[in-house]
Design a protein around this nucleic acid. Structure first.
Lengths: 208, 208, 208, 208
DNA sequence: AATGAATGAGCATTCATTCAT
DNA sequence: GATGAATGAATGCTCATTCAT
């Protein structure tokens, strides 16, 4: 697939491996990803991959890290754009999360759907770092609560509940489990609206 | 493990295989489930399994069907118990769904987390049948709407959105991705309340 | 090498595998023995070996056991033949041990030269059982001592010392480390005589 | 592990490689010694080793040579110390050999336990040179015979027989094959005494 | 004097499946 | 109704070595 001459520049192979792994991840899923397939896809020997990644898990963790960073960037941008309006910010964050998941299915599975027991070598501090992304939601809730826009008991718990809702939405869409007769965007909007409504104070927010 | 004599009754082998597969599924997860392991667990030859299931996928589909049926039973019971109170019914359905997911992680994974594209031989009509379970939620919404208890635009879409939220909740818990400092039951309650709030008309419902 | 039709009779494959492993052991040594080589030598798939042996170690242990049994038989026969004459018995035992080692080089390495640390899965009780063979030497010394033929302090220690001497003799010969100008049989005789002399009381025994 | 700055002095890399190889040999044994491991241990590229050693075998032979030289030194010192007393000299030589083997298991394995047939590239004259060490034993026997202290037929053969005994002693100890209930030093003393007794003329030598 | 990039061959093991009986 | 025998394909990984720089 990728042609050898692509690799003219030194160090690009690492990048090429990561990209190829991502593509295979979308196609075949995590449990069907193999070092050999990656290698053959890029026309290198399987051994070569080990020059850049100590083992399969390390390669995977590198991908997860990339995904987490990208998600962080995306949410970070959104948060900045709506600095002063917690409600709009939260809504935009929800949209951004779903949008990230849908446009990066390759990252999504390894980032959020893998069970830790089956990824033994993933350093626990990574999970903690990954949780940074939740803080965007929590901050929005916090600030919205102090501005009396939101009605929130425990922002930490609520942030997780929101995340759960978004995660479910992305997961079902990626797994193609949503009734095909339902319009994709309608579904997404419904999911977001459902989530926001729960925390918004004024009844007017219900039909924006 | 299971002893041969368990199989006294003729034809029970099919049953025994399914049960064993389920147990192994809980223990090791879907991707570690193997025909060989099932066979050795019940002290039959691997070949014997093929007398009852054409291949691994067929066996898997049988398990999925069982899971769907069990879930259907569970939701069905709940629905009957709260026949006249759509709100309570919806709440109970949510609880039942989450509870089913958490107590049957083995089923949950194959029922809702496997991607159909990677399970090529699963007949599509099964998914349709599986979607029957959604109708419980939809009916509750429908009836609630006609009783002016719920504020719902499109019950079919909303039912899916609710499902997404529940699915996300179960998924995150099963994947052990929820912040350990958050109490499990608090999280579940928050998720359910978040979902219900969105559709309930009266403000009083917010703090039950 | 071995032809497929050899395997007409069921169960012979196990035997064929063991024999082939033995041959390869002589040729290439323990550290170069591989399941694949065994398989390809007998024109079977590597997988087939696993039908008869759970893993490589189990296969190896089976060989060690066979070797130990054969050595036991050999020494046992010798012991019976010289029941009443401890000196002759000891001499014959020494000869038999060396002779076993030289005619079963494939067994010898795995039986006596492997370091236990590199054979992790070998059950410790096997080592104990293996030590049975030493008892023949010890008994001879014991009886010889009580008949005043031998001068022995601690028969257990002496038996081990004798074993060491014989083991060294076999090892050097197998490793082709003995000066080629020395006649093989002279060397063996010298080694045995050296060993016996140490324990025999009468000076006359020195030049039999 | 070893730090790069250790290599301040130009050309020492060869030395560093040999030392590291020796350490790894002790830790993991010959069959687990790999160029890659050596290289990573000293923080050099694997390629660098090939600047000093054409291939793994050459490196190994260099190690063997070093071992042989060290053994030669050890025996040589002993021989000088007991120049006039063949009996004491022989006894000391035996002790020194065993002691060398036990304190240099890394060398011992490659020096005496590797089969030449499996080390194809080792030049045969090396083995001859290695055999120099045997001459210390032979000389002691020769001189002892001419002083009527020893009773020896063919010193060359006897020297080899003694060597065999010592070699067996070291081998069994290194392979941890000696009954654990036997005290290590008792065993060594017994082995040496057994060897000496065979050649000493006077009965008094038996219980020194 | 030293390296980075790359590889082909090899390893033990597991798996779903087939076929003759 | 059940089995034993067998396999091809795959997997993660390690190794000694080469070559251009």
């Amino acid at each position: 697939m990728a042609v050898r001459s692509n690799n003219a520049q030194n160090g690009d192979l690492r990048r090429l491996i990561l990209d190829t792994a991502r593509h295979l991840l979308v196609q075949d899923g995590y449990s069907n990803l193999s070092m050999r397939k990656i290698a053959s896809e890029i026309d290198y020997s399987a051994t070569s991959i080990y020059l850049y990644f100590d083992n399969k898990d390390v390669l995977l963790h590198a991908l997860i890290d990339e995904g987490m960073k990208q998600l962080f960037e995306a949410l970070s941008n959104i948060a900045e754009q709506h600095e002063d309006a917690p409600l709009e910010r939260l809504e935009a964050l929800c949209g951004a999360f779903i949008s990230f998941g849908l446009s990066n299915p390759e990252y999504y599975e390894i980032m959020f759907q893998l069970r830790p027991e089956r990824m033994e070598r993933y350093p626990p501090e990574k999970y903690r770092e990954a949780r940074r992304n939740l803080d965007f939601f929590r901050s929005a809730l916090d600030e919205g609560a102090s501005q009396d826009v939101f009605d929130v008991d425990d922002p930490r718990v609520s942030a997780s509940a929101i995340w759960a809702s978004l995660h479910g939405t992305v997961s079902l869409l990626l797994a193609e489990r949503v009734d095909v007769r339902i319009d994709r965007d309608d579904f997404i909007q419904a999911a977001i609206r459902q989530t926001l409504r729960s925390y918004t104070r004024s009844a007017t927010a219900r039909h924006p």
